[in-house]
Amino acid sequence: MAFHEVRFPTDISFGALGGPERRTQIVTLSNGYEERNTPWHHSRRRYDAGMGVRSSADLEDVIAFFEARAGQLHSFRWKDWSDFRSAKGQAPITPEDQEIAIGDGETVTFQLRKEYRSGAQSYARPIAKPVRATVRVAVAGNEMHEGIDWSLDDTTGEITFVAPPESDAPITAGFEFDVPVRFDTDTIQIAMSRFNAGEVPDVPVVEVRL
């Protein structure tokens, strides 16, 4: 298997249904209280690409994409239209959107990440598939320049500085990103009579760990 650095057609993923999934193990004790635990530190996203298929041309594009990935064999990029930016809402992306690390004067490589915060709790999501042309980086509030101060591996989401940021300096970034996914089926079944009547095919897609 391999990761294909190609994005699923965005006009089709725009209409897809899906979002994050968590796995929680719940044990109800004899006194009625519960013990809850999870084996997953990171959430996993699932989508139904079939919900975005609106025409026979869309259907042809999905089948071609599915065949080129050999079904579940090869993974690919997916644009989650509900969550693909470092900035909130329609705010412009800035190099200070997300704090990704604090400099220690030695480390030069840092993983992009996005923080989700509610109240006192937060979750830091690693970003492995940034969109190269959108990435901006700053150190202690000063924007750095790609190709001069830092470089990006857009296949892993790692930023590498030419020189290590100073100790205690906040390292921040702004970016758009894709989700690494694969098809969650080796079969796509379509009845054209029902498709023409408004029934959409079932095309499940699931996030993969990298």
Rank of each mutant, 00 (worst) to 15 (best):
Met1His: 07
Phe3Leu: 10
Ser13Pro: 08
Gly15Asn: 09
Leu17Pro: 02
Gly19Pro: 13
Gly19Gln: 12
Glu21Met: 11
Glu21Ser: 15
Thr24Met: 02
Ile26Gln: 09
Ile26Glu: 06
Val27Lys: 14
Asn31Pro: 08
Gly32Ser: 10
Gly32Gln: 09
Glu34Cys: 02
Thr38Leu: 03
Thr38Trp: 01
Pro39Val: 00
Pro39Ala: 00
His42Gly: 01
Ser43Asn: 14
Arg44Cys: 13
Arg44Met: 15
Arg44His: 02
Arg45Glu: 12
Arg46Lys: 15
Tyr47Ile: 04
Tyr47Pro: 11
Gly50Val: 04
Val53Lys: 07
Arg54His: 09
Arg54Gly: 14
Glu60Phe: 12
Asp61Asn: 08
Asp61Lys: 15
Asp61Gly: 04
Ala64Lys: 10
Phe65Tyr: 10
Glu67Phe: 05
Ala68Ser: 14
Ala68His: 12
Arg69His: 13
Gly71Cys: 09
Gln72Lys: 12
Leu73Gly: 06
His74Asp: 14
Trp78Pro: 12
Asp80Leu: 01
Asp80Val: 03
Ser82Thr: 10
Phe84Asn: 15
Arg85Met: 06
Ala87Leu: 01
Lys88Gln: 15
Gln90Met: 04
Ile93Cys: 09
Thr94Arg: 04
Glu96Gly: 04
Glu99Gly: 12
Glu99Tyr: 02
Glu99Pro: 05
Ile100Asn: 11
Ile100Glu: 10
Gly103Glu: 06
Glu106Gly: 02
Glu106Phe: 06
Val108Leu: 11
Thr109Trp: 06
Phe110Glu: 02
Phe110Ser: 01
Gln111Leu: 03
Leu112Met: 08
Gly119Cys: 00
Gln121Asp: 15
Ser122Cys: 04
Tyr123Glu: 06
Arg125His: 10
Arg132Tyr: 04
Arg132Met: 03
Arg132Cys: 05
Arg132Glu: 12
Ala133Ser: 15
Thr134His: 08
Val135Leu: 02
Arg136Met: 08
Ala140Val: 01
Gly141Gln: 06
Asn142Trp: 01
Met144Glu: 04
Met144Phe: 00
His145Phe: 00
Glu146Trp: 00
Gly147Phe: 01
Gly147Ser: 05
Ile148Asp: 11
Trp150Arg: 00
Ser151Val: 13
Leu152Asn: 08
Asp154Thr: 09
Thr155Gly: 14
Thr156Tyr: 08
Glu158Pro: 00
Phe161Asp: 05
Val162Pro: 01
Pro165Ala: 01
Asp168Ile: 06
Ile171His: 09
Ala173Gly: 08
Gly174Leu: 05
Asp178Cys: 15
Val179Leu: 15
Val181Thr: 04
Phe183Val: 07
Thr185His: 07
Thr185Asn: 07
Thr187Met: 03
Gln189Gly: 07
Ala191Tyr: 04
Ala191Ile: 05
Met192Arg: 08
Met192Asn: 07
Ser193Met: 13
Arg194Gly: 03
Phe195Leu: 10
Glu199Phe: 05
Val200Gln: 12
Pro201Gly: 02
Asp202Lys: 10
Val205Ala: 12
Val206Trp: 05
Glu207Ile: 05
Val208Glu: 14
Leu210Pro: 13
